[in-house]
Amino acid sequence: MKDHVEQIRKDVKRLHTQGVNLLNAMRDEQFPGEMEEHFTNVLKRNYQEFKKSLPVFKSAYQPWYSEALALVSLLLPLRANDLIRLYERPRNRKEITKENYVIEDYLNDTTITTGFDKKVVAGPNAAIPAFEQQFHMIAGILGTLDSSLLDIRREIQADLLDAELDKAGQLAKNKFYRAAGAVAATVLEKHLEQVCARRKLKVSRKTIAEMNETLKKQEVIDFPTYRHIGLLHELAQLCLQNKKREPEQAEVADLINGTDKVIKTVF
């Protein structure tokens, strides 16, 4: 899971950097004179060296867009349709103007002219604002990356723990009560450990009992929840350590159901 989250972080940062280069490439293709003057006179940089470092927009954009759409769909799902709208030509578009010119038009070198003198109504430079908006979506994700990844991390953790609890339920169904209880106890311990880590609470011994005490002292949980986790700990001990008697079906069911409640309500 950690590797997955870190890969997302790297992908967003890489797409942001590529977006900067694509935007500069697009501007340079449309306004080379202005770009050269800006780099030479304002930034005091070698324009020709800069120009050599730029990608060819038409060949580099599609891979960028595919990855950007996947990441926006994952991290900023409400904006995915906006990203697509800025790329695809509208099906119901009756005429092309500067306002509805999209990146797909740019890739096809679409230019709309009017009159005897072929005055340009909408041309490739009209796509620059569309790409700027797409780029700003990636920049926005970069700005809220940690909170976005935290949400994903929580979802992944919840899915993993739910899967483990499902295994415990299957073991209990087949009357392997001690094994089922041991799995549920492990899930509870993992979840409490994640809660403590997320809240940066120091716990010397990461046992259910000690983490429960710490969460109560830090007022993360109220007394009824503290007592509930304490009872679950007792059932966990029965399954993990008490060899004098076998845990009963109802006790294991209480442990599984109680753990499920904790992982869904204690964060």
Rank of each mutant, 00 (worst) to 15 (best):
D162H: 12
S148W: 01
K190W: 13
V120C: 08
N125L: 06
L231K: 14
D117V: 14
E132S: 07
K119M: 12
L188C: 05
E210A: 12
N108I: 05
G169N: 15
M137Y: 08
A184G: 01
D146I: 02
T144K: 12
L232I: 05
D151Y: 01
K173M: 08
N108V: 06
H191R: 04
N108C: 06
N108A: 14
A184M: 07
V187H: 07
A130F: 00
R153V: 04
T225A: 13
L192E: 02
K167Y: 13
A139R: 14
E193A: 10
G115K: 08
L160Q: 07
G230A: 08
T225F: 11
Q133S: 10
N212E: 04
N212L: 02
V121F: 15
D146S: 12
R198L: 11
E155H: 03
A139M: 02
T225D: 01
H136F: 15
Y106K: 06
Y177I: 10
R178K: 13
D105T: 03
A168I: 03
E213G: 10
K119C: 13
A172Y: 13
N108Q: 12
I96Y: 06
Y226A: 08
I128K: 02
L142V: 04
M211N: 08
E95W: 02
A122Q: 01
L215A: 02
L161Q: 08
R198C: 01
P224W: 06
E213M: 11
N125M: 05
E95P: 02
P129R: 01
A209N: 11
M137C: 04
L160T: 00
V195Y: 05
F135E: 05
T186I: 14
L150Q: 09
A172L: 15
E193K: 15
P124W: 02
L160C: 01
G143Q: 07
A184P: 01
K216I: 14
D159N: 15
L232F: 09
K175Y: 12
E132F: 02
V187S: 04
D162W: 08
E99C: 05
L232C: 05
I221P: 05
F116P: 07
Q134C: 10
I141S: 05
K173V: 05
L171V: 04
N174Q: 14
R198V: 03
T207F: 02
D222M: 11
E99R: 12
R93A: 15
H191G: 06
R205D: 07
H228S: 14
L149D: 00
A185R: 14
A163V: 00
F223V: 13
Q134A: 03
I152C: 00
G115A: 07
G140R: 01
Q170C: 06
Q157Y: 11
P129H: 05
P129D: 00
G140T: 10
A185P: 05
T113M: 10
V195R: 03
P124H: 00
R178E: 10
G181E: 04
E95T: 15
R178A: 12
I112C: 04
R153L: 12
A179I: 05
F135W: 04
E210D: 11
D117A: 15
E132V: 00
Y177R: 10
N100C: 03
I208Y: 11
I229S: 11
Q218A: 15
D159E: 15
G230D: 10
A179D: 07
H233K: 14
R93W: 11
I152G: 03
T110R: 12
T114G: 06
K167S: 11
N100M: 02
I156P: 04
